[in-house]
């Protein structure tokens, strides 16, 4: 079994590296198709031909695309993702200043949302057709359909403006105590949870229900097992695969897709960094961020697959 997993991990990592390469190439090509480059964005209305040429030469933008790509790739392999074209700071430093914020927001959101979502999903699957199931179904559809910015804005209006309980802005730098942690993270986490819990709960419910309708569960029921045992002991282990995948997909969104939450709560994370990068055409920054998202995504999916394999002996062959 260990051999299988090791082989799988190695194989996956190899595929991951190739995926990263392809993604980097595609992103590089796509971003070079964007109108304007960093120099034009920087100089704006002062972009005289001489000034543009001089700055391009300085930043290496006068080279053809493939040379720039190889140069960037070489830098990445030797451990340096380059220097921001816009402010001259090393890209890794820029990312390092934001990554902890993104990770802590993601971690707290995951800690809150995953248990809640799994509980809702399993309970509503166990009592399919009950009032709880119907209401939780309705609520989750509602939560998935309402856009984040609306939830965030309404939360700010109620909790910060009207009631004054929470701060309208989130600043990870100011956290010293648990009370402050709640004050800072309550609203962004609440907003993100609305979307994530709904998605994960629905996937969990579907996966568990799928198992509950299979013959072996019927067998367990006939054998006289209590419902809770049927679900937790018999059905759930078989449902872990799809659930882990749903969780992984949802969580990967927390790594780079939370632009709206970051900008509404003024939370300095990675998502705004990449948006900045695209707007200013800061290619090294965009590339590094995309690589990071891609890597995070691959790791999460790999973990989900490992979970599925470990929980399901049939996949371990």
């Amino acid at each position: 079994m260990n051999g299988t997993i090791a082989r799988l991990v190695v194989g996956r990592l190899a595929v991951g590296v190739i995926t990263l390469l392809i993604v980097s190439l595609v992103v590089f090509l796509l971003t070079s198709l964007l109108p304007g480059d960093a120099v034009q964005e920087m100089l704006g209305q002062e972009a005289t031909p001489e000034a543009v040429a001089a700055l391009r030469a300085q930043l290496g933008l006068d080279q053809p695309v493939y040379l720039r790509y190889l140069h960037w790739l070489g830098g990445l392999l030797s451990g340096s993702p380059g220097v921001s074209m816009v402010n001259g700071m090393p890209v890794d430093q820029l990312i390092a200043s934001r990554l902890p914020n993104t990770l802590s927001l993601a971690a707290i959101t995951a800690l809150v949302s995953v248990p809640v979502a799994l509980t809702i999903g399993i309970v509503s699957a166990m009592y399919r057709g009950s009032k709880f199931d119907r209401y939780s179904n309705m609520l989750t559809v509602f939560a998935v359909s309402v856009p984040e910015f609306l939830i965030a804005t309404i939360a700010v209006l109620i909790f910060a403006v009207k009631l004054g309980w929470l701060s309208a802005l989130s600043r990870s730098v100011e956290v010293h105590s648990f009370g402050e942690l709640v004050r800072v993270y309550a609203m962004p986490v609440l907003t993100l949870c609305c979307v994530l819990i709904a998605q994960m709960a629905r996937m969990t419910r579907a996966a568990v229900i799928d198992q509950l309708s299979s013959p072996y569960v019927e067998m367990a029921v006939l054998k006289g097992a209590r419902p809770i045992r049927v679900v937790l002991r018999h059905a759930l282990p078989n449902a872990i695969g799809p659930i882990a995948n749903a969780v992984a997909l949802s969580l990967s969104y927390l790594l780079g897709g939370v632009v709206i939450v970051e900008s509404i709560f003024n939370y300095p994370g990675i998502a705004t960094l990449i948006v900045n990068g695209v707007i200013t055409r800061d290619m090294p920054l965009v590339q590094a961020c995309v690589m990071l998202f891609c890597l995070g995504f691959l790791m999460l999916v790999l973990l989900a697959d490992l979970c599925a394999i470990l929980s399901n002996p049939r996949l371990r062959k």
């Binding site: 965030a152 804005t153 910060a160 403006v161 004054g164 701060s167 802005l169 509404i264």
Partner: peptide, 10 residues
Amino acid sequence: ARISALLAGD
């Protein structure tokens, strides 16, 4: 969000 931050006194 900017207006809310002002109204909330942040």
